[in-house]
Design a protein around this nucleic acid. Structure first.
Length: 755
RNA sequence: GCCGAAGUGGUGGAAUUGGUAGACACGCUAGACUUAGGAUCUAGUCCCGCAAGGGGUGGAGGUUCAAGUCCUCUCUUCGGUACCA
């Protein structure tokens, strides 16, 4: 296809030369508390003895063996991305080169909310429950408390009460449910009383403590104060379990009755049932109540983020081994730097069920503790999330063979950050956020002097195609399905009817992929490039179809014939290309073509430079070519020929990034010196962009009724008079009085006559 | 569910800040040239209508002299949703 990659800089992130430095950074992060280990939950299939991705869990069952999946606690490594939550959020607004939709998604993902942290004492125990709430104004309406089933206090609270068994059963049941924000909505909201009460710090009253499946341990503090009058989930829960609903915020001019309310009221209002805060508007009360509770040591202002720390442990084989050693005496011990890289062993039997073979490889696992020398220490057998690799590979390109560190600081200083990054919009949050985080880590260590990895970002759309399924052979490649006369498809191997599925993004596993090599063989690289670029703007999803590729081929041939015609009819010893202002041209056809040429240069430059909209850039050049075709070179005068040469020159340069091989040849044929790729980009003459005539379109009551041309410098009042005198307009106005005439003079002149 | 997009002729797609909807192509129709055409050229092609005119950017409302574009509601499709990467 004629891409200009510098293969000397090729890297592969699965090679030890690369991931050695990832392990090195991990150790540095570990040393600085930026990487840490804690227990967390994974989807676990007992039968397959493996961890499942969320997408591998189908209706709470393993996709492979259909056994129920349960939540299992494992020790896992995390990166403290939340330390940078605020910084990552703030800089979302300082990325002018990024599409706004991406920064919006990132902001929502980080999910900052401002509120208060409140502490509730457990009645009769020396324990406290901390909650985060965005609505401290409603604390007087908190009539119960809900803890996540995984909350460490749940077990302590119910122990010894008659609820102990019920709670244990509930926790077990929830362990079989998917515990994510997404999963929350799938299950009916339910909970169980823990047998204990806590004290509402505002009212001093005892309120029951529940554990409920809609509270997540990973979000906030894993506990919520439930205010049924002001939160729909709490409201539903209170109705279900017959808990008190107490109104504390009343919309102005209304009286809410808790017995007949059907939904929670979340809007603004006046405080009621809230002691000394009654009568205050709830907005003021937020601050006032927080301050009041703070004085008593029962709360403070706080912010909470939806963003969670980045779990990087994978119980998988493919990935960078995590460079730590577990010693019975010393605990977790980092691998000494001189022992890096810890190489992923390659002589392994891959597991049928998807689990990692590493925990079974004694040679790999068994090692000596670097701290105390014990010989029964064992290596960590987890590998890192592959997002870790993709978070810094672009810096490695700056010095791909560098052996003294992740990258050569001078090279990174010179090249980075990346000027223009291109990737699918499916990476809008994870990959792009992790990369931004990694640059902050490196910046924190003083290794780089910038924080943002990608100055400009283009999120390209996906190429999509329908899937084909044969009842016998499963997914088929497009060439394995043959079209029948009835516009249906049959399998080329078994002849059975093929089912045509939905249009989805191309993927190897679904086989709905096309090979550009076939187009390349038929039409060549340039026509293939032209066709792809002309099909749609890059940020848009594209349903692949080869209809229209003939048109691209036709266009290239049209240009070629134009070049041949020029060489046949224009003697370049006598005619040189015109470069002056349009105003000096006498022949109106020559002048029009010259103006068109400069308009085209202007448009193509802007389309490519600002937005990579090659499709409209190509369309503009096509218009120029169409204009060139209207000129009869056999009868043209010298002035016109000089303008044609100028137009041809510009056209070849404008097309050169799109169809480079072809343009190289035309450039040479037309007498160009050197390579077309070394020529400066054409520049439009700003004095040659506008024609002498302007089109006036005339509307009556907003409907187009007539149009005519005037000299570009015609006075506006004259144009209005001409519009009113226009035959078609007169007919439409008839004898109705003219109320108003609006004249807009932007890209064209528009007159709207209101009657 | 939540977050983010997209929806315009038979098709891919155009349309600075609201200002001629359908640029540029594909396809189709007719014609010219040609021994021939899957080459090339010319003309036509949003829909209804002989025309004058009317309708039209997923749907329903609204703001405006003027709405594909702004606002409200809604439908459909796609991407992401933290272990697909």
């Amino acid at each position: 296809m004629g891409f200009s990659y510098d293969w000397d800089r090729e890297i592969a992130t699965c090679r030890p030369e690369y991931y050695k430095w990832e392990q090195w950074l991990f150790l540095k992060m570990l040393e600085n508390g930026m990487a840490y280990r804690r227990e967390s939950f994974v989807n676990w299939c007992e039968k397959c003895q493996t961890v499942l991705a969320n997408e591998q869990v189908e209706q709470d069952k393993c996709w492979r063996c259909s056994q129920p999946v349960r939540q299992k606690k494992l020790w896992q490594w995390f990166f403290r991305i939340t330390d940078f939550a605020e910084d990552l959020l703030v800089h979302c607004d300082k990325l002018p080169g990024w599409p706004e939709k991406v920064t919006v998604m990132q902001k929502n993902w980080i999910g900052k909310s401002v509120g208060s942290e409140l502490r509730f004492r457990v009645a009769g125990m020396d324990e406290e429950i901390e909650v985060f709430t965005t609505r401290p104004d409603t604390v007087f309406g908190a009539t119960f408390m809900c803890l996540a089933p995984e909350h460490p206090l749940v077990e302590t609270l119910c122990r010894g009460t008659d609820q102990e068994q019920a709670v244990a059963a509930f926790v077990e049941k929830v362990a079989a449910q998917e515990r994510s924000l997404e999963g929350l909505e799938k299950y009916e909201k339910e909970g169980v009383f823990t047998g204990r009460y806590c004290i509402n710090p505002a009212t001093g009253e005892e309120i029951p403590i529940y554990t409920a499946n809609f509270v997540l341990m990973g979000y906030g503090t894993g506990a919520i104060m439930s205010v049924p009058c002001g939160d729909q989930r709490d409201f539903d829960f209170a109705r279900k379990y017959h808990l008190e609903i107490r109104v504390v915020v009343q919309p102005e001019g209304e009286t809410l009755d808790p017995d007949i309310m059907e939904t929670a009221y979340t809007g603004p209002g006046i405080m009621v049932n809230s002691g000394r805060f009654n009568g205050m508007d709830n907005d003021t009360a937020m601050e006032a109540i927080t301050d009041w509770l703070a004085e008593q040591g029962r709360g403070k202002k706080a912010v909470s983020f939806r963003l969670r720390d980045w779990g990087i442990s994978r119980q998988r084989y493919w990935g960078t081994p995590i460079p730590v050693i577990h010693c019975p005496d010393c605990g977790v011990v980092p691998v000494p730097e001189q022992d890096l890289p810890i190489v992923l062993p390659e002589d392994v039997n891959l597991m049928e069920k998807g689990g990692s073979p590493l925990p079974f490889l004694e040679d790999f696992k068994q090692t000596t503790c670097p701290a105390c020398g014990r010989e029964d220490a064992r290596r960590d057998t987890d590998t890192m999330d592959t997002f870790v690799e993709s978070s810094w590979y672009y810096l490695r390109y700056c010095s791909p063979r560098y052996e003294q560190g992740m990258f050569d600081p001078d090279a990174v200083q010179y090249w980075a950050p990346v000027d223009q990054y291109i990737g699918g919009v499916e990476h809008a949050v994870l990959h792009l956020l992790y990369s931004r985080y990694f640059m902050r880590v490196l910046h924190h260590f003083g290794m780089i002097d910038f924080k943002e990895p990608f100055t400009r970002l283009l999120t390209q759309g996906m190429v999509c195609k329908e899937t084909m399924t044969c009842p016998e052979h499963g997914y088929l490649f497009p060439e394995q399905a043959k079209k029948t006369k009835e516009d249906a498809y049959v399998c080329t191997r078994c002849g059975k009817d093929v089912e045509v599925g939905r249009v989805i993004k191309m993927s190897k596993s679904k086989k709905n992929v096309v090979d550009p090599n076939e187009l390349m063989e038929t039409y060549g690289a340039d026509v293939t490039r032209l066709f792809c670029l002309f099909a749609a703007p890059p940020e848009r999803d594209l349903e692949w179809s080869e209809d229209g590729v003939e048109g691209s081929n036709r266009f290239v041939n049209r240009v070629w014939r134009l070049a041949l015609a020029c060489m046949d009819t224009i003697d370049t010893r006598q005619v040189t290309r015109y470069t002056g202002p349009a105003g000096d041209l006498k022949n109106p056809d020559a002048k029009a073509l010259y103006i068109k040429t400069h308009q085209t240069i202007h448009k193509v430059t802007a389309d490519i430079d600002e937005s990579f909209h090659f499709n409209t850039a190509i369309a503009a050049v096509m218009e120029l070519v169409n204009a060139l075709y209207t000129i009869d070179l056999d009868t043209a005068d010298v002035e016109t020929k000089a303008v044609v040469l100028a137009a041809m020159d510009s056209m070849v340069l404008l097309l050169s990034p799109i169809i480079p091989h072809f343009c190289e040849e035309v450039f040479e044929k037309m007498g160009g010196q050197g390579s077309v790729l070394e020529q400066p980009w054409p520049k439009q003459r700003n004095d040659s962009l506008e024609t002498d005539e302007a089109l006036v379109v005339v509307q009556v009551n907003g409907k187009l009724r007539s149009r005519f041309s005037v000299a570009a410098d015609t006075d506006e009042s004259v144009i209005k008079e001409m519009a009113l005198a226009d035959e078609k307009i007169v007919r439409h106005i008839q004898d109705q009085p003219v109320k108003k005439i609006i004249l807009i003079n932007k890209k064209q002149i528009l007159v709207n006559i209101v009657v």
